[in-house]
């Protein structure tokens, strides 16, 4: 059963009481929150996700609550907790939904070392998975959002989960996080893009999340085979420029962008080496999204 077929009142009741169970990529989560911002964010962006059944094993239990005390009324705040553990300082309550996304990123990056996890957007076309590792400001999420609006499959806008057992990539399609001007750029680029609430003044500037394509969510269970690694860089006023990278330097660059390369030790090196050997690797600077799309589609 999908979240979108859950009546409004029932969704809110579950969030308040036993928790709302969701299948998110390979993970099962249960979310508790009495906050309206969270319920509305889920309705806008998580409609295509399936619910867990009562007997399912839950990987991660998370909650978003208002801290106790006077702050309930005066500049209200929100606290993210992971099964009772509070990893971050509270944020203004208006950022509660964004905090759910950030909190879940943190939980996965710290508790799923059965994967080599790379900080990257991951998309697929014609059965070839393309990994876009990104330092902040590289424009990976913008490029990713644009491509998935034009038919590419979204595997993740934040992390590539590479199975340490098989080397396959596990999809975790979730809302795509867009910042500042990117929000308007994507809205203008595609009429298919559905945005959640726009939140001002976060630590990352203005933030909004784009709903993941329904097809991508429905295909969450299908692992992908890696074939392409592209390091994107948004560069104003330039024609798209693709520069081939040697495998050795690509390996070092991907390792730098990994959340848990050092946790996995030798195994991490082996998995990464195996990944790189299956991929063509490039650095890519672009300005226009259309031209970028053409260049990348020509590679596949």
């Amino acid at each position: 059963m999908k979240l979108s077929s859950l009546p409004r009142a029932e969704l809110r009741r579950r969030l308040r009481q036993e928790g709302l169970g969701l299948n998110i990529g390979p993970f099962t989560i249960r979310l508790n929150s009495p906050l309206t911002v969270v319920a509305e964010g889920l309705e806008q962006l998580y409609g295509a996700f399936t619910l867990t059944s009562d007997t399912d094993f839950i990987d991660f239990r998370v909650a978003l609550n208002a801290p106790p005390g006077l702050r309930r009324w005066f500049r209200p705040q929100v606290i993210f907790s992971f099964d009772g553990f509070i990893p971050f300082k509270p944020l203004p309550q208006i950022q509660a939904f964004a905090m759910f996304e950030w909190g879940l990123n943190w939980v996965i990056a710290n508790n799923a070392h059965q994967y080599l996890i790379i900080h990257a957007a991951v998309i697929e076309r014609n059965g070839v998975v393309c990994i876009l590792p990104g330092t902040p400001g590289s424009g990976k999420s913008t490029l990713c959002a644009a491509l998935v609006c034009k038919g590419w499959r979204l595997l993740s806008d934040e992390m590539a989960l590479i199975s340490t057992a098989t080397g396959d990539i596990y999809p975790v399609p979730r809302p795509v996080s867009l910042k500042n001007q990117s929000i308007e750029i994507i809205q203008n680029y595609s009429s298919d893009a559905v945005m959640g609430e726009v939140v001002m003044d976060t630590a990352k500037g203005i933030v909004s999340h784009m709903r993941p394509p329904q097809m991508s969510v429905e295909q969450s269970a299908q692992q992908g085979a890696p074939g392409l690694i592209v390091f994107p860089k948004y560069t104003a006023g330039e024609e798209p420029c693709l520069v081939s990278l040697t495998r050795a330097s690509a390996l070092l660059k991907v390792a730098e962008n990994s959340f848990n390369y050092s946790v996995l030790g030798l195994q991490g090196f082996d998995v990464l080496g195996d990944l790189i050997s299956k991929c063509d690797c490039y650095e890519f600077s672009y300005q226009s999204l259309d031209a970028a799309k053409e260049t990348l589609e020509a590679l596949i």
Binding site: D59, N111, A112, H113, Q114, S262, V263, G265
Partner: peptide, 16 residues
Amino acid sequence: QRMQNHLQSAQAVAMA
């Protein structure tokens, strides 16, 4: 299987 995944993940942390 889900429990096995968590155990594998935790063992990686201890080894690190």
